[in-house]
Amino acid sequence: MNLQNKKQNKCIFRGDGVTVKFALKKSFFGKVLQELTAVDHISFKLKSGETLGIVGESGSGKTTLALSMVNLVKHSGEFYYNENLLYDQHHLHNKDIQIVFQDPYNSLNPRMNIYDIICEGLNVHFPDLSKENQRERVLQILKEVELNEDVLPKYPHEFSGGQRQRIALARALVIRPQVVILDEPTSALDVTIQAQVIELLKNLQQKFNLSYIFISHDMNAVRAISHKIMVMQNGKVVETGSTEQLFNQPKHTYTKQLIKASIL
């Protein structure tokens, strides 16, 4: 962590005109006849150490946007990390940008034990690490996500949703990324567990100066963690603003609807 990153106003991750289109119908020769624009020219900026919340209803393109941020879907437009262009033919992924998925039951390999799951990133990015150092780092990250050492030899099916989400978080954090994209990390969990996970995320953010992109349809969760919020509808951004501003003086009718719905 260098000092520059600690400066609050430095932009660490930004997207510029990001567009994702899916072909709905193709001709016999592969020509696209009909397509759906899931993400439509979205630009955003994420400052170092901050959280950008992205809200919107189901089908608004939030998750697709998240997938495009880690280059899991074909997209046009550019992403910049510390003002360096991300993702070209030779760089399909970036160690500093990691993702945590919504469904904790789907995001852990049922046939790998927790140690292997967490260790996988170390194998790729720190192949020179000795076995002891590897284990040390795994144990360290396990402590950070508030899990015991005895989880390591177990398999994912032995854990609850909240614990699994912590394991998924540990897997992403073990290689020390700067930006973590959280794709509805709490929506599959009970309300009490949700609060715990959000608390944990906040603590980790402070400790490691992480920057989050927090995607959710739950306005309360987004409000609890975000510094800035972006509201999406049908693949487009309808409103952006700081959390307070957006909740106190929503401009767009869709934002108002979302806020109203969350209070009910």
Binding site: L72, H93, K95, I97, I99, F101, G121, V124, H125, A168
Partner: peptide, 14 residues
């Protein structure tokens, strides 16, 4: 299409 495969891709696993 499972998320653990996607997560592995993002981690840069070959």
């Amino acid at each position: 299409n499972f998320e653990y495969v996607k997560a592995a891709k993002v981690l840069g696993v070959s």
